[in-house]
Amino acid sequence: MSVHSDNRGQSGLDSGEATDVRDLHAAILRERPDPIEGREPLNLWVVAFIAALLFWAGTYLTQYSGGFRSDEFAERQINPAPAPVAAGGGAEDPVSKAVKEGAIVFATSCSPCHQADGNGVSGQFPPLAASEWVLAEGPNRIARIVLNGLSGPIQVKGSEYNNAMNAFRDSLDDRQIANVLTYIRNSWGNKASLVTPAEVGAIRGGTSDRSQAWTVADLEKVPVSGGAAPAGAPALTPAALKEALKKLSPDELKSVLQDVGK
């Protein structure tokens, strides 16, 4: 191709670059024999940037994917803090299994008030760690608290609280309540027996006519353990039942019998 650039350069209106230089440039670009020369390697910064992005992607994916479960909607609850339960050796003993699942319920339903470390907020939300209510022999009272809530004065670990806790009867099912109770009974140094869904179910059924929150006065009428749990559940060996019944005052005994009669 022949270039008569002088003809065109006369215009006096070129955009700042001499025409012949540009044409020369074009020719060079087009005819350069060895394309290797023109291959600018990818800028190292670009490569580093992409590598950093990929690294971030991997981290984010593993941290915020709810364990890739189809039933996990809250990305942040993945890998719940390893349950501080004594690993008894067996891969999945019922307690640690319940604790694991209960941890998730606890994080969404209870920790806003009782705090993740179970210590509550002094003066407002009583602690669950080392609470005598939580560590009671059976789940009778705490299951009622979770089902219907609690209001009025209560003594926990020697301090007085007078506040209100909401009911979870409609928002948590038996399994979730049993798991979360097992969790609070076996975390932060607590150690107490497993709570089964059947126990919770029985208590739910037995208290279905109660609509207001519990008060300490009402709760104290409920035996600490045994009672409403169905036959066959671990808490209800005849011996344990006898033991429990012996502890009751005549009045309490009467109310238990009435409950059972329903």
């Binding site: 670059e17 025409t19 540009r22 044409d23 440039h25 074009a26 087009r30």
Partner: peptide, 13 residues
């Protein structure tokens, strides 16, 4: 260089 050709070469706005 594919968008360019002799008719509309590189270097011409």
């Amino acid at each position: 260089l594919l968008p360019f050709d002799e008719e509309e070469p590189v270097g011409r706005a």
